[in-house]
Design a protein around this nucleic acid. Structure first.
Length: 559
DNA sequence: GACGAAATAT
DNA sequence: AATATTTCGT
């Protein structure tokens, strides 16, 4: 988790506090540079000549991170000597003179950079880069004491900014760097352990650093689109980005992500619930397109397991979606909005508007959802439908009851109705311990257990996904109490591209519906129908010449 | 390329 | 064992 933050504590605001050794024969110039450096919170030790500086270094090895050495106009000898002696110290040369050969010699001797005086703040600001570079390029064994914390600190920062702080990461990074060192050594063998300086103001180097390593995909990472939608759909994208830390990625990621928060999130991801909550508060920022007054705050899907070492994006592994209650609720909501029949992953995904969630995730969940229904519902039906001859018949001629829960109902119906007896209960379940059903309740869709029934003659398998709304040409006559009739009757607001059916409810149809409802009390009530009072039911039955009511019907009458 | 089911993985 | 992801056929 944030264990790495501890390390960070040591040098939380790197590069502030970086110890700079300054050698300048000109005391005025020295003072000027010093004050600028100090303004940036560097710690400066000034020396008038190289020898003093060198002895300071020798006396207290590791007390400096970087050196700035002036190459005197008259005598550059000392400077060269310094370079040769203090090879372990990233040394920036500076001078009023601009003699190319001198510059070259400095660089050849291992200077990391040559800066012309005057040293502007801008030039000085990023001298820390050399330290970092050094820290990451010095072989693990030679890593001087002073550089270790630098490395640690940087690694930590990178990790944090990449949304994850994981020990593993550190390792991968280190490994990576070792290989880099190798590469570099070959390339720059002429010089020393110091490498050509980057242009100071640029953060180029860091990139290159990792670039050369095994992270060839780094480019990909950084190029990777930031679009909300870029869902892991594109396997390639996710996969390509090595799990090595992509600094390139980092830039992007860190720019948009409140790292603090993200870390928090990671921290608590063990508890999906809490985590999710948090997230929802935070980065709703980019969901602009998404919620148009949706009650639920959007939240990016959080990788449920903090175990990936890289940022969500840069991570090689697909992050595992934790289908928390909230998330599932959204899912169900979406499915219901679409109507189970039209609920295809992509559309569900759209409706859910959950950042980071992929179509695959949804598809998978949908699969589970359907499976669940398939397995649960029969039991439900068993429970609800008293064994009877009717039931047997049903098996042969499965009938959908009259639409009790319209697949295409308006949203408000949904959001206000307590349709999630199970999922909606806060705390009723822990994330991760997802329960798909609960005794007595169809967890998925409380009222759905029947209108999913298959059409006659249709393979059960297909029946599950079978639209509540059968093809428009479907003959009423075969299934008088078909939910579709309601649809066609205009009782349902079709929002899903169903051909608008403008038929008005036909009395006959309604009548049938009512009769069906009354005649089959074990079935849930069609939406829009009030539960009939027992009396009215009895009366109706009487009217129809039914005077005796089987006890089992009485008892199972839906509320 | 999207789906859905089955096979795998965690 | 449950649930998420990946693979594979359509």
């Amino acid at each position: 988790m944030v264990c790495s933050a501890n390390d960070l504590q040591e040098w939380k605001d790197f590069p502030k506090g970086l110890r700079v050794l300054l050698v300048d024969g000109d005391s005025n110039s020295a003072e000027e540079i010093r004050s600028k450096l100090e303004a940036m919170d560097y710690i400066v030790s000034t020396f008038c000549n190289e020898n003093e500086a060198l002895s300071a270094i020798l006396n207290k090895p590791g007390s400096f991170h970087v050196a700035i050495v002036e190459v005197g106009t008259s005598d550059s000898h000392g400077s060269f000597k310094f370079l040769e002696t203090a090879k372990d110290l990233p040394t920036i040369m500076t001078s009023n003179i601009h003699c190319l050969s001198t510059m070259m010699k400095c660089i050849a001797l291992g200077a990391v950079e040559f800066l012309r005086k005057p040293l502007s703040e801008e030039k000085l600001r990023n001298i820390w880069q050399h330290v970092v570079h050094k820290a990451f390029n010095a072989g693990g064994s030679n890593l001087s004491e002073s550089l270790k914390p630098v490395k640690e600190s940087v690694v930590s920062m990178l990790q944090l900014q990449l949304e994850n702080g994981e020990p593993e990461n550190r390792i991968s990074m280190e490994t990576e760097n070792e290989s880099l060192v190798h590469e570099n050594d070959k390339e720059h063998s002429a010089g020393s352990d110091k490498f050509p300086a980057p242009s100071t103001p640029q953060l180029k180097q860091g990139t290159r650093l990792l670039d050369d390593g095994d992270c060839q995909d780094q480019t990909n990472c950084s190029t990777e689109k930031e679009s909300v939608e870029q869902d892991g759909e594109s396997k390639s994208v996710e996969t390509t980005c090595g799990d090595s830390i992509g600094v390139g990625t980092l830039q992007e990621d860190k720019l948009q992500i409140p790292e603090k928060n993200l870390i928090k999130e990671e921290e608590e991801s063990a508890d999906g619930f809490k985590s999710e909550r948090k997230v929802s508060h935070q980065q709703h920022n980019r969901d602009s397109l998404s919620n148009k007054g949706d009650d639920c705050a959007e939240k990016p899907i959080k990788p449920s397991q903090p175990h990936n070492s890289c940022g969500a994006r840069a991570n090689r592994k697909k992050m595992k979606v934790d289908w928390t209650q909230e998330l599932h609720k959204k899912f169900v909501h979406a499915v219901e909005q679409l109507g189970v029949d039209h609920a295809i992953p992509s559309r569900i995904l759209e409706l859910m508007k959950v950042e980071g969630l992929t179509r695959h995730n949804v598809a998978s969940h949908l699969q589970k959802y359907r499976m669940h229904r398939r397995h649960i519902l029969p039991k439900e039906q068993d429970r609800r439908w008293p064994r009877s001859r009717d039931q047997m018949q049903r098996n042969y001629y499965p009938q959908r009851p009259i639409m009790a829960y319209p697949p295409y109902h308006s949203n408000h119906t949904l959001s206000t109705a307590p349709i999630y007896p199970v999922w909606g209960q806060p705390g009723s379940q822990q994330a991760g311990a997802q329960v798909w059903g609960q005794p007595g309740y169809p967890a998925w869709q409380p009222t759905n257990n029947w209108h999913w029934n298959s059409y006659p003659g249709m393979p059960a398998d297909h029946a599950w996904g079978c639209p509540v709304v059968p093809p428009t040409h479907h003959p009423y006559t075969s299934f008088p109490q078909n939910a579709a009739e309601f649809h066609h009757a205009g009782a349902v607001n079709n929002s899903c591209g169903m051909p608008p059916v403008d038929h008005h409810p036909e009395e006959e149809v309604i009548d049938k519906v009512v009769k069906e409802a009354i005649g089959k009390p074990w079935l849930p009530l069609p939406l829009g129908l009030k539960p009939p009072s027992t009396d009215s039911v009895l009366a109706e039955l009487c009217k129809q010449g039914i005077s005796t009511i089987p006890p089992n019907i009485k008892s199972s009458k839906p509320q």
